[in-house]
């Protein structure tokens, strides 16, 4: 209930600033543009959304930090962090409240992007099973990306710095798998890099393989960064 109160505040606060509207408009617009205009959809002549979902990790590199950049950084800059931290909330409630508020914004952006599968369905015979799996994957990947962004937002009082850090770290999480393929890479390290690659897990899921390991990976990354976020806040009390 307490988490819900905070999540609701964060969700509606997004609409008090232009950033929220920009994210909500850009996400579906970019996803549709990349899919229909620059992607191979028409060349494939197939009612498939796999190219659509393939763009999602890259979109999230830009948009997840845009959702989270203000969540702690702005609170710290404006001083409202003190207000929030002197209200009777547990730190975990504050962190989870912000996380779920941000996740709800992402979910809303995904709802707007449903225009794409409905259009494809109108053009051909779309199999909705993989679409559901795809959206679940984006939600999980998005959750992990938001947790990374939220953690980095708690490390600074500058929104732009928070966005840059978030985008850089998420880009690294999406490219780390490429490093694993380098010839000079020791096999153990290569496996570790592959295991950490956001896109690697995501592609497996969008192929329709809902593997518990992939789900646990995203949930684990999310939990790790949310705990790290709590640690940053607690440490600040002692600094």
């Amino acid at each position: 209930m307490r988490v819900w109160l905070l999540a609701k505040r964060e969700f509606f606060a997004t609409f008090d600033a232009p950033t929220g509207y920009v994210v909500l408009a850009l996400f579906p617009a970019l996803a549709a543009t990349l899919f229909f205009l620059t992607g191979p959809f028409f060349a494939l002549n197939e009612a498939s959304l796999r190219p659509f979902f393939a763009t999602m990790p890259w979109l999230l590199v830009l948009l997840a930090p845009a959702i989270t950049m203000s969540l702690w950084a702005e609170e710290k800059r404006s001083g409202t962090e003190e207000l929030l931290l002197t209200y009777p909330f547990h730190l975990r409630q504050l962190v989870l409240g912000k996380f779920f508020g941000a996740w709800a914004i992402l979910a809303l952006a995904l709802v707007f992007s449903l225009a794409v599968p409905f259009t494809v369905d109108a053009l051909g015979d779309l199999d909705w099973g993989p679409v559901g799996g795809g959206y679940l994957s984006v939600l999980l990947l998005g959750g992990a990306s938001l947790a990374v962004g939220l953690f980095l937002s708690s490390c600074t009082d500058n929104q732009i710095v928070a966005w840059l850090l978030g985008a850089t770290v998420l880009l690294a999480f999406n490219l780390v798998g490429l490093a694993a393929t380098a010839a000079s890479m020791p096999p153990t390290l290569g496996q570790l890099f592959l295991a950490l690659d956001f896109g690697n897990h995501f592609q497996a899921m969008t192929r329709g393989v809902i593997d518990i390991g992939n789900i646990m990976f995203y949930l684990g990354v999310t939990a790790f960064f949310l705990v790290a976020n709590g640690v940053v806040l607690e440490r600040r009390r002692w600094s």
């Binding site: 109160l5 505040r9 404006s78 409202t80 209200y87 009777p88």
Partner: peptide, 23 residues
């Protein structure tokens, strides 16, 4: 608090409702 930090984008009514629920 010093400098009275507030959520400037929120309406007075919404903010006070939020604060009341926080307590």
């Amino acid at each position: 608090a010093e400098n009275n930090p507030l959520y400037l984008d929120m309406r007075v009514a919404d903010f006070l409702h939020f604060a009341a629920r926080a307590f």
